Amino acid sequence: MKAAFGENPKRCYKGKKIDTRMQISALLRETLAKTKEYIQKKESGKDVDYDQKLEAMIPVIKKQMPLKCHCHRADDILTVIRIAKEYDIEVTLDHVTDGRSIIPQIKESGFPCILGPCLGHKSKYEVKNMSFETANEFYKAGIPFCIITDSPVVPEQYLSLSAALAHKAGLPEYEAIKAITINPAKILKLDDRIGSIKVGKDADFVVCTKNILDTQNEIKTVYVNGKKEA
């Protein structure tokens, strides 16, 4: 389930009572509160009109599904953390462009960070602090994170390049590889199936000519479910 903060919802829904950051957070709080009330009425046996939107939010309230919160600026990230604590829900912090400026607060929250895209233009003011150095700062702080391209913003074929540039900016090589393999699998809670090569896991992997972070690397063979693709 996705929730967006910052300039995107302000721009997309301007004139529809979502013109400020305060209105964005207020709308989310209202939705979460209404969902809790909706659940209580249903579980107590009361007659309640079916609400498709609130039904969709039930897994979020019951922690069966994380709320993927897209946030760039430090104040938006902190708003997400505060709301998640208020309503006792699980969230992922997506983009976290300003994450380096509030490392202690992010670490204390325990929420995983989905970092990126860091490749490309600083297309709006709230991404002015975009940097490949953020990944290493998260690693040193012990914050769980992965690296993304936010495809199609940056094409997904540049995922390994993004990890390579994070390595160039200080992130240890092995940690850069983990940031695009096992780390996202853990955040998705799918690491029992994917993200690494291990007995019992899905045998999806590639054989390369060089290190996956090497820009001269070429993929020689692709295996899906243990079978070589033509």
Results as ranks from 00 to 15, higher is better:
196 S>N: 08
196 S>Y: 01
131 S>T: 15
144 P>F: 14
196 S>I: 05
72 H>G: 01
208 C>T: 09
130 M>E: 10
104 P>G: 01
9 P>K: 14
193 R>N: 06
48 V>N: 10
225 N>H: 12
19 D>W: 11
128 K>M: 01
8 N>T: 03
211 N>A: 11
180 I>W: 03
143 I>L: 10
54 L>C: 07
180 I>Q: 05
130 M>G: 12
57 M>Y: 15
142 G>R: 12
187 I>W: 03
207 V>H: 07
153 V>M: 04
107 K>P: 01
165 L>Y: 04
77 I>F: 02
203 A>I: 10
59 P>R: 01
62 K>P: 10
110 G>S: 14
167 H>D: 07
170 G>H: 08
225 N>I: 03
159 L>D: 03
120 G>K: 13
35 T>P: 08
43 E>C: 11
123 S>P: 00
129 N>C: 04
5 F>I: 11
126 E>P: 02
10 K>E: 00
51 D>T: 10
178 K>Q: 11
91 V>P: 01
119 L>W: 05
39 I>H: 06
214 D>M: 06
183 N>Y: 14
143 I>P: 02
143 I>Y: 03
108 E>D: 15
105 Q>W: 02
39 I>Q: 09
61 I>R: 06
66 P>I: 01
153 V>F: 10
54 L>Q: 09
190 L>R: 15
141 A>N: 02
101 S>D: 00
52 Q>Y: 15
170 G>K: 13
189 K>E: 04
73 R>M: 04
22 M>S: 10
27 L>E: 02
106 I>H: 02
197 I>K: 01
157 Q>A: 01
225 N>S: 13
163 A>L: 03
227 K>N: 02
195 G>Y: 06
218 E>V: 01
186 K>N: 00
144 P>M: 15
112 P>A: 05
132 F>T: 08
195 G>H: 07
75 D>K: 14
193 R>H: 07
139 Y>D: 03
172 P>R: 14
88 D>Q: 13
60 V>L: 11
100 R>F: 09
7 E>D: 12
43 E>R: 15
34 K>W: 07
230 A>I: 14
112 P>I: 10
52 Q>F: 15
78 L>H: 04
18 I>A: 03
148 I>K: 02
12 C>Q: 08
2 K>L: 05
55 E>Q: 14
75 D>N: 13
206 V>G: 04
184 P>Q: 15
31 T>M: 00
164 A>N: 06
111 F>T: 00
207 V>C: 05
7 E>S: 15
223 Y>K: 07
42 K>C: 06
95 H>P: 13
82 R>F: 07
12 C>V: 09
113 C>A: 12
165 L>E: 08
226 G>T: 15
37 E>G: 12
125 Y>F: 09
178 K>L: 11
145 F>I: 09
220 K>T: 03
11 R>T: 02
68 K>H: 12
29 R>G: 04
98 D>R: 12
